[in-house]
């Protein structure tokens, strides 16, 4: 689907990205991760045919973005970091304009606009002027314009930027719902925000690709299999801690919180701990309320990846 070979973009002496190479298979949802200024937007703008690289090559569906940009643009939907919205237009009118601009036949424009509004939950603001919309709605209109022509590749640059927690969950659900219909490349500088919806992560730092793989693969690479799990059980902390300490691979169990009879425990150890920890707690008669990969671990994966490169 996408092949990127030795992509470099120089702004004078400064290299925004340098020698990026990676591949994306059709139907994958890829998280593009990096700190602010890492080169994510530059890369995505090149993939979106908005920007030309200094050197290197991008091939999408067998088409070169430099020499066959017009054909490539028919296959992609791009949401830049700032949604490209015409403030004075109504939402439906704007989406119809974008659909026509992206080559949707006039007889199908209405249906495509309705479908895009359905997917992005914009029906209620169909007739609303864009300037009157909240930030969350504006981001959704941005996503809707990217998918209104039903492209095979969707490139979303920081779609969760500036959203509140509820809106982030909604946006995440939206991106998840796109899986299967589109290949999706979504960027963020916050790993937990996108890790749940992505098949694979590409981590970029200072313009270079520093790691790629699933969340588990990245965690394994950094901590030689180290992992952390967060558990919530009802009841006393001590028996649960004892049980978890007996699970093979567990090195440390700490009590993170104890509120109204609900204990939050953080379990650190080697390898995949979730299954064994759950069995141990349930087998020990504890009421297990929650068990998932620790958000702290996700953050630390990302921080370690970027620190590794900084040190080297």
């Amino acid at each position: 689907m996408i092949e990127v070979h030795g992509l470099t973009k120089l702004y004078g002496e400064h290299a925004a990205i340098r020698g990026l190479s990676f591949g994306i298979q059709e139907g994958e949802v890829i998280g593009f991760l990096g700190l602010n200024g890492a080169g994510k937007s530059t890369t995505l703008r090149i993939l979106g045919c908005v920007l030309l690289p200094t050197s290197g090559r991008v091939v999408i569906d067998g088409l070169d973005t430099a020499t066959q940009a017009h054909e490539v643009r028919q296959r992609i939907g791009f949401l830049p970091d700032t949604p490209p919205l015409y403030e004075e237009m109504e939402v439906g009118e704007y989406l119809a304009f974008v659909a026509a601009l992206r080559g949707v036949p006039s007889g199908k424009v209405r249906a495509r606009v309705e479908a895009a509004e359905e997917k992005t939950a914009l029906k209620e603001v169909h007739r609303a002027p864009i300037y009157s919309l909240s930030h969350g709605f504006r981001q959704r209109v941005g996503v809707a314009q990217a998918l209104v022509h039903e492209p095979s590749l969707l490139i979303l640059d920081e779609p969760t930027s500036g959203l509140d927690p509820v809106q982030i969950i909604e946006m995440r659900a939206l991106v998840r719902s796109l899986k299967g219909e589109h290949t999706v490349l979504v960027s963020s500088h916050i790993l937990p925000e996108i890790s749940q919806v992505c098949d694979r992560l590409l981590v970029i730092h200072r313009g270079e690709l520093v790691a790629q793989g699933t969340e588990g693969e990245l965690a394994g690479r950094l901590g030689a299999g180290a992992s952390a799990v967060e558990v919530e059980v009802r009841g006393a902390a001590a028996p649960a801690v004892e049980l978890l300490r007996g699970v093979p691979g567990v090195r440390e169990v700490t009590v993170a919180a104890e509120v109204d009879g609900v204990v939050t425990l953080r379990v650190a150890g080697d390898g995949e701990l979730r299954g064994a920890a759950a069995r141990a707690l349930v087998g020990g008669g504890h009421e297990l309320l929650r068990l998932d990969r620790s958000a702290h671990q996700l953050e630390s994966i990302f921080l370690q990846l970027t620190r590794e490169v900084t040190r080297s």
């Binding site: 703008r45 979106g48 830049p80 700032t82 490209p84 601009l101 080559g103």
Partner: peptide, 14 residues
């Protein structure tokens, strides 16, 4: 200024 050029640039428009 409004940041809408990427819409035109990423569309199949010459």
């Amino acid at each position: 200024q409004a940041g809408t050029l990427p819409l035109l640039y990423s569309s199949p428009v010459r």
